[in-house]
């Protein structure tokens, strides 16, 4: 009796071993096929993208068509949210701000970034340390570095205004030229509290943070330009400026365009800067689409309207990406 049970157990073990072996080899053969292995390797990425990007995006589109508020199911309202937004002054200001902020900040970052890259491309002592130091604003958490901007632009204790006042006092004691007794801006602008200055202050902070990315990317591109081209231009008698316009710029154009597109998209959807510096104020004058969507959905609780606000980013993003990609293709053909 005991013998037979031991024998069956042994048989079962060996049978299961054999099964295991054949299963492994079946899997191995299947994975030898590129078409199977390709799909298997993409499963984790695919699942993540479906569950946490594609489905939320579809859900967002659906929410934008409803009047959903926090804690209650919404009912279908068609395009009412979009119509309401297009009719609201705050939304139109935010949409305009988003375009203005993105275009101006990206243009400044590209111009200054190119300048800094050209400077960093020279040979000088401590060049590695300098490159590392210059990249620092891009590395640290944006929110934390924005807090120091909030402090430097403080209405009462702004260090910039302290310097302006110091210069003004210096002027008074040295030259004694009183232009106008209470020349408002000599006391310093109200950087974040005055609608006329607030957007400029936000752009300044954004440029500070984003400049290193441009500079280092452009620097990498500059280093791929063959020096023979410069030698040839020099023989032809080209000046420094001409060399930059006719040799450097055309050579790094493809990389420059990729960098600008990438930065454009990131700047466009910026949230943190405005959230920390002004919360969209004063008088809703500095809202971007992202911060307005946050305010409508998370503060006021109108999830449907908030989702609609966020969706207004899609056509603008789409236009930018398509324009730039066709441009890339065009210069690729040339």
């Amino acid at each position: 009796m005991a013998d037979t049970s031991a024998a069956t157990a042994r048989a079962r073990v060996s049978a299961s071993r054999a099964g295991e072996k054949s299963r492994t080899s079946w899997l191995t053969t299947q994975l030898e096929d590129e078409r199977v292995l390709g799909y298997v390797l993409l499963v984790p990425a695919f699942l993540l993208i479906i569950v946490f990007i594609a489905y939320p995006f579809a859900l967002g589109v659906w929410m934008a068509l409803t009047d959903k508020v926090v804690g209650q199911p919404g009912s279908f309202v068609g395009l009412a949210n979009f119509a309401k937004l297009l009719d609201s002054d705050i939304f139109r200001t935010a949409a305009w701000n988003t375009v203005f902020f993105t275009v101006v900040a990206t243009a400044i970052k590209a111009a200054l970034g190119m300048w800094l890259a050209v400077l960093l491309n020279r040979k000088f002592r401590l060049s590695r340390v300098t490159r590392a130091a210059v990249l620092l604003p891009f590395i640290v958490p944006t929110v934390l570095s924005t807090l120091v901007w909030l402090w430097m632009l403080d209405g009462t204790f702004s260090v910039f205004n302290w310097i302006l006042r110091w210069l003004w006092d210096l002027e008074l004691s040295v030259f004694g030229l009183v232009v106008k007794e209470d020349f408002g801006y000599i006391r310093g602008p109200n950087w974040l509290g005055d609608p006329a200055w607030a957007m400029g202050s936000i752009i300044m902070a954004n440029v500070w943070r984003g400049l290193p990315f441009f500079a280092i990317s452009f620097l990498a591109a500059l280093q791929t330009v063959p020096t023979e081209l410069y030698d040839a231009a020099e023989i032809d008698g080209a000046s420094g400026w001409r060399k930059f316009w006719n040799v450097t710029l055309p050579m790094i154009k493809p990389v420059a365009i990729v960098v600008v597109v990438f930065s454009f998209v990131v700047t466009f959807a910026d949230f943190q800067l405005v959230y920390v510096l002004t919360r969209g104020g004063p008088y809703n004058s500095t809202h971007l689409l992202a911060t307005l969507a946050y305010q409508i959905s998370m503060h006021a609780g109108n999830l449907g309207e908030g989702a609609a606000t966020a969706l207004f980013m899609v056509p603008l993003l789409f236009v930018v990406i398509v324009l730039q990609l066709t441009y890339l293709r065009r210069i690729g053909v040339d």
Binding site: F52, I53, L59, Y294, A310, M313, V314
Partner: peptide, 13 residues
């Protein structure tokens, strides 16, 4: 795709 586009529906997920 920026997080600002997805954060509202992701809250639901």
């Amino acid at each position: 795709v920026p997080p600002a586009l997805l954060f509202i529906p992701l809250t639901g997920v």
